[in-house]
C-alpha cells in the first residue's frame, strides 16, 4: 500500500527532514510511526498525502508513484487518503454532520447518499446522537472522533493519523486506538504517528522508529509472525 524507497526530504535551506527512508506497508496493515519530535514523523505523513514532495527517492502509494501526480491531480489522490490531525482541523461554523459530510460534498454525492454515509460513519465512532451539535460544544475526544468519522466517511483504503491522541488522556487514547483497530480489521491500511511510547508498546502492531531523519528501527509486532 505504501512503499518508500530511498526517499529523502530536504527543505529549502538545506535542512534534511528525512534521509534514505525504506519501508513497505502491506494493504490492511496497521503500523505506528514514532520518534521524538523533529525526527520527521509529520514530514513522512506529508509525503504520503502529497502535502510535501520527496526531494529524492520514490514514494509509491496504492500502486501510484507520487512524483508522477501533477498538482491538479493532488485532490483526487487525497480523496484516497483519510487524514486525522492532532488539532482535528474541524470547521467550527458547521455542525458535526456538515463536517463529516464535507468529503462527500466535494465528491459530488447526492443528498440521500450523503445522509446515509455520514450517519454510518458517525455510528462507527459512536457519535450518531451528536450530528446536529457544533464541534465547539464537544469534548476533545469527541472532536477527534468527528475527525476520524470525516476521514473514513469516503471509505479510503488508507488512513493517516498525526498524533491523534496527542491531547487525550490514556483512557480516551485507548478508545481512539480501538477505533483504528476496527478499521484495520476491515482491510484499511492505517499508519499512526505518535510519540506515546507507553501506549504503542502495549499494542500488537509494527512500529517504525525515526531518529535524526532516518528510519532507525522497524520492529515487528509483539505477536510476531503475523506480517
Amino acid at each position: 500500500m505504501i512503499r518508500f524507497s530511498h526517499a529523502s526530504k530536504r527543505y529549502p535551506g538545506g535542512y534534511d527532514a528525512l534521509q534514505d527512508i525504506n519501508f513497505h506497508l502491506a494493504p490492511g496493515e496497521m503500523a505506528f510511526l514514532t520518534g521524538h519530535s523533529g525526527a520527521g514523523k509529520s514530514t513522512l505523513l506529508k509525503l504520503i498525502a502529497l502535502i510535501e514532495r520527496a526531494s529524492r527517492g520514490q514514494v509509491i502509494v496504492n500502486g501510484q508513484n507520487l512524483a508522477k501526480i501533477s498538482r491538479r491531480k493532488i485532490p483526487y489522490h487525497r480523496r484516497n487518503v483519510g487524514m486525522i490531525f492532532q488539532d482535528h482541523q474541524l470547521l467550527f461554523d458547521r455542525t458535526v454532520f456538515d463536517n463529516v459530510a464535507l468529503p462527500l460534498v466535494i465528491n459530488g454525492l447526492s443528498h440521500q447518499e450523503i445522509g446515509k454515509k455520514v450517519r454510518a460513519s458517525l455510528d462507527k465512532v459512536g457519535l450518531l446522537s451528536k450530528e446536529r451539535a457544533y464541534p465547539i460544544t464537544l469534548s476533545g475526544g469527541e472532536q477527534q472522533r468527528v475527525g476520524i468519522a470525516r476521514a473514513v466517511v469516503n471509505k479510503p483504503p488508507l488512513l493517516l493519523a498525526d498524533e491523534p491522541t496527542g491531547n487525550l488522556d490514556p483512557e480516551l487514547s485507548r478508545e481512539i486506538m480501538g477505533i483504528f483497530e476496527q478499521f484495520s480489521q476491515v482491510g484499511v491500511t492505517v499508519l499512526i504517528a505518535s510519540h506515546d511510547i507507553e501506549l504503542i508498546t502495549h499494542l500488537p502492531y509494527r512500529v517504525l522508529t525515526l531518529k535524526n531523519a532516518r528510519l532507525s528501527n522497524d520492529s515487528a509486532p509483539a505477536t510476531a509472525g503475523q506480517y
Binding site: P75, M83, Q89, L90, I106, N107
Partner: peptide, 15 residues
C-alpha cells in the same frame, strides 16, 4: 482555515 481543510480532504480548486 476552511480552504486549507478542504484542500486536505481532497477539494479541487474548482470546488
Amino acid at each position: 482555515d476552511e480552504i486549507v481543510i478542504i484542500k486536505l480532504i481532497g477539494g479541487t480548486d474548482t470546488f
